[in-house]
Amino acid sequence: MTWQSFRRFPWIPVLLLAPVVICGLAGPLFYPHDPTVVNLLAPRKPPAWLPGGDPSFLLGTDHFGRDLLSRLIEGARVTLMVAVLGVVVAAVIGISAGMVAGYFGGWIDNLVMRIVDVKMSIPTILLTILIGSAFGGGLVTIIASIIFVFWADYARVIRGETLSLRERGYVALAKVANCSSFTILLRHILPNLFATCMVLFSLQLGRALIVEAAITFIGLGIQPPASAWGLLIAEGRNYLATAWWIPTFAGLAITMTVLGTNLLGDWLRDALDPKLRQL
């Protein structure tokens, strides 16, 4: 690695995200304790460095005496899985809808854009509350909400890009060569949307994490006894005055991850295509 590429490497986002991704993939290897084991003899123990802290519970324990660090590590898996799954499905739907709308135009474009308008007119959290009122709380609601909320952003941006891409010379030549619309979209337009999709994905992942935590916080998302960061903050709310560490560390974990994905998105945008600054 030359000094130039070393300097350009996105160190800050990678350093922020690496521990989260490692915990998400291989969390059980690092548990200091089992995150589900209740220990009613040691509830709300403060972090190890404070008076009354126990060195074996580095970040302290929650109201049931469960080890907070282990719950945070376990939470990384659930939290990341939900956000990634939601955003990936949203991306597939949004990219397809956006490409079809932008390429074919006409009534199909109108239909897609009107649905996007409808989605845009309902604030995110309210839309998730509405979905929650229809399906009840839980994982289904939270993933459905993320898909509902985020597909429209993809559709809008990808449609705009497709509109300009379809006027390019190589698309006209492909038509002359008798390529089907499907082949043109898949082979000639989709690869050119790659940069936009990557940047959007990274930025949306951060937003999805916040939405996920917010839905869980108001009681419609991930339900106890699971460990998710949003849930830890919600549980910690009742112990704010007596056990500040429960919500504090979970919130720091969310902030660190979202900051990482936001910075990575910014870096990708500058690295892949400086023209994308308005995203």
Partner: peptide, 15 residues
């Protein structure tokens, strides 16, 4: 700005 956009509302409020 970038940190402000990375923190969940309800957590800022609780802090």
């Amino acid at each position: 700005a970038v940190v402000g956009q990375s923190m969940p509302h309800f957590w800022i409020g609780m802090m």
